[in-house]
């Protein structure tokens, strides 16, 4: 680990003062500290935001929920409003990490987890995400847990979060405080960036910009919610494929569908074509197959992750049956 300076932020405004590329916020530290020990991340300065007053969960007037960026994953998963109205989120949170990690990990930090790509962690191998322009070791290497959608010839990393997948299905808004004091409200759909030629840039956040809250709109009435995670062991493993589903059936037809996917892409994945294949239709295996076709149309395996394509198809179809069945 490289030596660094450490500073406790006294306010959110003070926290965003430093825009240096070598400064990092730290809250739970469940990902950052591991990366620092391996020197994947080598910040010169840590700004500790863990004591800022951003750990509340509040009801909003429109029936939604405002979640402070410092709310621990455990607290969010156990919140009665989350369990009642956003079951998919509670289930996604509990599908991630371990009890100890969830106690420390925060809402904002979870959104900003770095990839678990094997080569990102091995600092002696090329990795465009770690160091732009060095190459991608995962292409042509071992890539069991890596992406089949949204990849580029520079990077095939996956985003590891479960929580963010549920939030993408719930149309979350990410509220930030920028260096200049302005607040921004970013749809989660616009928050993450595809790797393209710059896989090291993962979100639209600007230097110094701090996530302060995540807002969830009121959930659709009568919708069934589900989070299904397929992984290599029963707990404490990242998703090979996960599905967050919020689907409402009215009068025998699918009235609304929000489906987001983990383990498949460089960001929590959502594809309007999948939902378009379903909405307005009578639930049927043919319709579910069409939705899976839409999802996996451009899917590309890289060898050891080829199985994710049939696995995603099977998992999505089974989830849609659960979401629309009697």
């Amino acid at each position: 680990m490289k030596t660094f300076t450490y500073e406790k932020a006294t306010s959110a405004e003070a926290a965003v003062a430093d825009t240096a590329a070598t400064t990092r916020f730290i809250a739970g530290g469940t990902n950052l500290l591991d990366l620092m020990k391996l020197q994947v991340e080598t910040p010169e300065k840590l700004v500790d935001i863990s004591r800022l007053p951003l750990a509340e969960i509040e009801d909003m007037d429109d029936g939604g929920l405002r979640i402070g960026a410092l709310v621990p994953n455990s607290d969010l998963a156990a919140d009665s409003r989350v369990i009642e109205r956003y079951e998919v989120l509670s289930r996604a949170l509990l599908a991630g990490a371990s009890g100890q990690l969830r106690n420390k990990a925060t809402t904002g930090g979870n959104l900003l987890q770095r990839t678990r790509c094997y080569y990102f962690y091995d600092t002696s191998t090329p990795c465009n995400k770690r160091e732009r322009g060095t190459g991608c070791s995962a292409i042509g290497g071992f890539n069991r847990i890596l992406a089949v959608l949204g990849t580029s010839d520079q990077c095939i990393a996956t985003h590891p979060s479960d929580m963010a997948v549920a939030m993408r299905a719930l149309d979350a808004t990410i509220v930030t405080l920028k260096h200049d004091g302005d607040k921004r409200r970013l749809s989660i759909h616009d928050f993450y960036r595809l790797p393209g030629d710059t896989p090291d840039i993962e979100t639209v956040l600007e230097p110094g910009e701090l996530i302060t809250h995540v807002e969830l709109p009121a959930p659709p009435q009568g919708a069934r919610q589900l989070y299904s995670k397929v992984r290599d062991r029963a707990s404490y493993a990242f998703a090979l494929v996960s599905v967050a589903g919020v689907v409402a059936v009215e009068d025998g037809k699918i009235a609304s569908a929000a489906l987001a996917f983990g383990g498949l892409g460089p960001m929590p994945w959502r594809d309007a074509a999948v939902e378009a294949a379903l909405v307005g239709k009578v639930p049927s295996d043919d319709g579910f197959a069409a939705a899976a076709d839409a999802l996996l149309k451009g899917a590309q395996g890289f060898g050891s992750n080829d199985f994710k394509i049939p696995l995603a198809r099977r998992t999505l179809i089974a989830c849609l049956r659960d979401l629309t069945g009697e």
Binding site: R116, Y118, D122, T125, G141, R233, A234, S235
Partner: peptide, 28 residues
């Protein structure tokens, strides 16, 4: 689940930690 993977291009282990070398956890 236990599966120590070698990158045959370099002789590095791909998963030399408890995150990706999967021993059984309680839930297993």
């Amino acid at each position: 689940s236990e599966d120590g993977i070698v990158d045959t291009r370099t002789g590095h282990f791909v998963n030399p930690d408890f995150g990706e070398y999967h021993v059984a956890v309680n839930a297993d």
